[in-house]
Design a protein around this nucleic acid. Structure first.
Lengths: 223, 223
DNA sequence: CAATTGTATTGGTCTGATGTTTGTCCGGGT
DNA sequence: ACCCGGACAAACATCAGACCAATACAATTG
């Protein structure tokens, strides 16, 4: 194994063993490189790799820290990967979303707060068939993100966030505007909000299934 | 933004734009570093970061290539992250598994092949309450992995694989052996196989829900 | 006491040299 | 014609050392 990969493993092990915990600061690069027995350049490659998956947080002029390691941080790393995997099998991604989104909505129906409901309703304002694609994408991201967040499970919302990379969404909304299906989609969003307001878990689940399936079917024939 | 991060973005964009496709070889480090306007050292940090999330494949003495970018590769990257996130909120992870595993089993019931069924049955051989924890973990990983694979959705099985890091599994099985709950768990596995053999999607879904919930409840009281 | 300035610490980047591995080509032997 | 081995080139791996830039913190100053 290359020295850099060894360093990655060693740092990972230090975290797993508890020698390093969330928020802890690592020794300076020079010191750590000597301790691990490799050059600073090689160590930096290892640190960079751990930084991109949000395990380490490097602050110039300050030091390198272990991140909070909250599940939320999983999102960014996963999004990065899913972004690159797009086009490969969007339908597979939709199949997973069709499983998770209704489940999230169902859970959310029993837990969602008034503030979150208000935020959901707010996303519907100023949105219509005439709205720009960028705004629609933004609305959609926030809308589904809020529902996932209301389910109160960081892993669940992180995974859903990642599976709905904005790049993919943008293309879909672009297609929807051409197909003049925007108001149907927005009407579905409205129904979902109403179900959540009533705390109707079963209805919320069903509406999400229909909603995702609708887009999925449009996608299927578009490909 | 630092030059290294710029390089990461640029390489990512080259892949997204199609300038680089799966399997393509990147220019040599020296050449690419000049093209992107940074030193070789900094470029190497960028490459290392993309290598760890399985976007690039570096072959010493040969060159650097874009990986196949198959969803399967998502697993390794995600597992690495989830491994580090363990202990933080295992129950959240179980909640997601309780959503995905039954869905996967339900889909698998209609698609599973005879070979896959045989493989599933094979995992039950030589397994009993007396078996070592290592073997039980191995059995469990393969068992659930096969079901996920039978659902024939790479993203689904990748995510499930990642959520079931062997580190977590090991600890759970260790607990189960102490609680003498091993044969109940194995009996549930048997029932699941039978449901899949009959192609009974609804039953498979229910059994998986019960199965995951059972472990989940044990975990809840153990924490 | 607050604002400013200095300075040490720490990460960011570059350069250039050297080691290691791999792929390829070519010549000799069968 | 085929196979094998060595030489060579290409490409990544690693290191050492230098200098830049941002930050934290203590000292200074008003």
């Amino acid at each position: 194994m290359a020295v850099t990969d060894e360093a990655i493993t060693k740092i990972k092990d230090m975290i797993l063993s508890g020698e390093l915990s969330a928020g802890d600061r690592l020794p300076p690069e020079k010191e750590l490189s000597e301790k691990l027995g490799l050059s600073r350049s090689s160590l930096r490659e290892a640190v960079k790799a751990l930084e991109i998956i949000r395990v380490l947080d490097v602050r110039r002029g300050d030091g390198t820290y272990v991140t909070s390691l909250e599940p939320k941080l999983l999102t960014e790393a996963m999004t990065f990967i899913v972004d690159l995997h797009q086009d490969k099998s969007i339908l597979d991604i939709f199949e997973v979303r069709r499983i998770l989104e209704p489940a999230a909505a169902s859970i959310a129906a029993g837990r969602i707060s008034l503030e979150q409901l208000a935020a959901l309703r707010a996303t519907m304002e100023d949105i219509s068939e005439a709205t720009s694609v960028e705004s629609l994408v933004e609305h959609d991201l926030v809308f589904h993100g809020l529902i996932a967040a209301a389910a109160n499970n960081s892993y669940l919302s992180s995974i859903l966030d990642a599976l709905s990379s904005s790049t993919v969404r943008a293309r879909i909304w672009r297609g929807l505007t051409q197909e003049r299906a925007v108001d149907r989609t927005l009407a579905e969003h409205n129904s979902i909000i109403e179900a959540l307001e009533r705390g109707d878990a079963e209805l919320a689940r069903a509406l999400l299934t229909v909603h995702i399936s609708g887009v999925e079917n449009w996608l299927r024939q578009a490909l």
